[in-house]
Design a protein around this nucleic acid. Sequence first.
DNA 1: AATTCCCGCCAGTAA
DNA 2: TTACTGGCGGGAATT
Length: 429
Amino acid sequence: MDEAAAAAPEAPPVAAPQPPPYQPLRLLLEGAGGSAGAAAKACRHHAYSRKQKSLGLLCSNFVALYDRDDVDTVGLDDAARRLGVERRRIYDIVNVLESVGILVRRAKNRYTWIGFEGVPAALKELKEKALGDMSGLVSPLLEEPSAANVSDDEDEDDRLGDADGDADSEKLSQSQSMELSQSQSMETPSDKPDTPRCQLRSDHRKEKSLGLLTQNFVKLFLTMELETISLDEAARLLLGERHAESNMRTKVRRLYDIANVLSSLNLIEKTHQVDSRKPAFRWLGQAKRKEGNNVTVALQPASKVVSSKRAFGTDITNIDNKRGKFVSETENKGKLMQGDGSMLKTFESQLRQGKSGGFVYGPFHPAGARKHEIDDRTREKESKNIQDWESLATSFRPQYQNQALNDLFGHYVEAWKSWYLDVNQESTS
DNA sequence: AATTCCCGCCAGTAA
DNA sequence: TTACTGGCGGGAATT
């Protein structure tokens, strides 16, 4: 807890590139552009600026601070203190960094710094894992519910017990209970005396962790050859299709967080999709420090390290401005798209054109079954998606088979399964 | 208005 | 129990 100063094998005490005690923060936004830049400089007083507190910037600073030869261990407290942020934020950073192999958790409060050299291996492993296991079997459904593939997990959002919980905290919607997304549960749902085991004490199925999400997000790029994907699409892919709006929202929020740090690692880059101008991310794959060497840490003048717990008045974050408003117009100006001229080998583009922007990786729809049913009433929307999927399935076939993708998006398969079962039920009668 | 995404409450876990 | 972790989503900043 308090590694005051004593036994703290942390990183170098406080030497090295230690930034000046207190400086206005010079954002190292990826202003790139290079062209002069509006310099803006902003008002001298630091008005609150979200960018100054972004996870991305924080990550850059984090890396700049620890990516040195003499660093071996990273202590969370140390990091939080030196970067001037609350601990909670460090967890966010560290979790994604670990997912990409830059760090390894060693113990409570302690991580071992690996550095960018660790990235390649981590990515490779991720890719293999994604494509690898569970090869074959085109129709995982029908199969035993619990796939048992424990390997990388797959989370599947619904625990059988109550399922989906989803918790829709939404009051309404009570009416239609078609939910039922039971899917598996081979046994009769009705009150069984008690579930002997499968309880799995759900709870921490919490493996919806940022770390896993990060890995799955990365797998998306690693396996499919698309070079741009919007967080929205990613969320949809990483999540079963049927899902309350709320889940999606939360997922997307997390993806924003992840994307920001991956961006600062230069693993991805923000752009816009070719045709639609929707913001999206492109995989760069070359983890490296974002340019802008200077660490822009702002240490509190002398504030006594707040006890890491919340303390309303005090603010441990960079600089003293809270979220209050103060109009700060920072120059910034993300250089938006610079057109991704790189056509690359993605079939993706053609896919997009096919559909007018819409485009949704329709999940693994069985293509046959219920199709007519809906395309009848559910005008374009749905049927369109299906069509999409079908064409996508045929035209978009990288060197990997679909199985691989199936595996990757286990959740999707799950969704499909439940859907499939539902359909069957209906049809039976 | 829509999109981003910071902030920190607070519930699980670990020591 | 206390300290760590880290989901989660309100709602403010940005676009």
